[in-house]
Amino acid sequence: MTGGRGDPGLLDRMVGNSLGWLDGARPFFRLPPNVTTDADPNLTLKPLGELAELTQVIASLHPCAGIRETAGGLFAFAWGETRDGELFAELVRGEPFATYPVEIYGAFARAGRRNAAVEELLSTTARLRGWRVARDDHTRTLGVLNAERRIGLPQHADFDAVLGHTVLGRLPEPWALDRRAAYGVTHDVFHLTDWGRTPRRLTPDLAGYLRLWLPSWLESWLEEQLWDLAGELLAVSACLPDAPYDSAAWQRLAGAQAADGSVPETGTAPCPDDPAEAFTACYHSTLVTAFAGTLARIAAGPSAEGSGAAATDRRAPSAHPLRCESEAIP
């Protein structure tokens, strides 16, 4: 693993190809008519929320205009699927104490896509004492706290105190991480850094811990061909000060990306005979690949030279005059 500039050409191809596949998968992200009643949120709202969360990062931070445009189109599509946020009002009325509508709405609110009726509802539900009852998963609580911050709701708990109870906050023995705990670590970092936008929130202790142990985790899960988790770990690497660039790891993830741009969650790509099955098996890891590639691309940019580039807030691309391969050709 080395510091330095990475391989912008490879990263841009991976991000572009991922977004191309995701763009073609819009029909599978569309919400069914029964989304607020008996549809499985894990197959409907969860994919759409993740699409919104990650494409918004890419659309606002990636240095290549073409990639920003595709990502922005997908983000707008996701907002459209929520009927400009009206969906969230229905979800909150249906499940006033559920956190997932708030978490997903937060991704839109952060980008200025807001809905007055939703916020009116949340101004009541999120102020209840019942809302402050601890969730049984501290990492998830961080997600709720981040959503509250994005929407402008009062913080129902102290972020740092909750972080101290998470997997990352406990700094566990690095050999004791199982797959679930590793996903906990990646999401602790994502919530803490607002999905890579504010990496300076990683304290030196946390950054030092991650810098030491990420290589062994990456190696482990690349060997297991768990591409989804490996992608998340690469995204976390890109959040570190003077972000290390693990060229071999990126090459291996690139090797897992199919010609159509999809990245399977594990192993090799599924048979494309059943497009719905292929979507379920690939959408998250493909999104993660585009997200991680974007963060790595920014970390590898000119401003990354010298110290602490990744430790500052990430800004819109105008502050990162990076050349993109596709744009270098007149």
């Binding site: 690095p174 050999w175 004791a176 991480l177 030491l212 142990w213 290589p215 062994s216 985790w217 190696e219 482990s220 060997e223």
Partner: peptide
């Protein structure tokens, strides 16, 4: 030392 420590982590995980 750091690299060997990473190797310990990988070996336990395997």
């Amino acid at each position: 030392t750091d690299d060997l420590a990473r190797g310990f982590v990988r070996a336990v995980r395997r």
